[in-house]
Design a protein around this nucleic acid. Sequence first.
DNA 1: TTAAGTGCAAATATTTTGCTGTCAC
DNA 2: GTGACAGCAAAATATTTGCACTTAA
Lengths: 152, 152
Amino acid sequence: MPLPQTEQPGRLQAELMSRGVRMTRQRRTILSVVETAQQHLDASQLLRKARRIDPEIDRVTVYRTLKLLKRHGLVDELDLMHLQGEKHFYERRPQRDHLHMACLRCGKILEFESNLFDRLKGQIQRECQFHILVTRMEIGGYCSQCRATGPA
Amino acid sequence: MPLPQTEQPGRLQAELMSRGVRMTRQRRTILSVVETAQQHLDASQLLRKARRIDPEIDRVTVYRTLKLLKRHGLVDELDLMHLQGEKHFYERRPQRDHLHMACLRCGKILEFESNLFDRLKGQIQRECQFHILVTRMEIGGYCSQCRATGPA
DNA sequence: TTAAGTGCAAATATTTTGCTGTCAC
DNA sequence: GTGACAGCAAAATATTTGCACTTAA
């Protein structure tokens, strides 16, 4: 992911174990792939990378592990404006939330942190009495390079 | 949708025709369903409602019409935090954007307009040089009633 | 030891595509 | 009249489930 990751390897594994989750060889492999990913990956890409480490890993195990991570709030699920169909993408939950911009022309994904975003969440918690557990903000449009070239 | 709709019937149809889009009996039916919907509907619900008006309408035509409306920026597609699986939900694009809160306990969907939200979009356009065409902000958590009752 | 996890196969759900006939303009 | 659209069937894609075997704790 573009934003700097201050992530120690093994952190996900430690986190899950501290919550009493059973640690298997397959899970360790998948967690390491999630942790070291440099972009947003979908289940199939995750499976492919996991199989480079352990060729026996099954696709279903990837789905089940992702569900586990979501349930524990350790990864966030993204749709990236359905730019690539109905795939879901995953990223480690960051310390500070960010939003995603998807360029509808070139497909680039940009991330952005903002005080206004943080304040908006605060406003929602306060004014709507809504207890926020997950946020997903995705924006579709044209990135600076593509808007310069004019509409497609 | 909870927020007040200042929508004239036939507006979608007029909008499309003014853009030179061919108007068929099926499209008119589907547009009227989209316009009069009181909640966010997915493709199957839309089909069911359309068939009450014209039982001959095909599911594929619903999908194609939705794609047409999305392409013209007349409806927005929502995932509602995948609370109901991978369905997509649709709503007429509002004059002012709002965000969606999905209660992970009771499944209620709330909408919220906010100046901070508007300002955040302005900030993105300015600071990221990103030309915004669509926004989708969805928040998962517990609504005021459900948080009062404690976690599930 | 045993409850939880894995792999395999099959099922499910949603959306898209190819093709032929039909209709809006 | 003709190019865009509708309906039908089939395909494609993504994800989930049932069940017997395996393994972490």
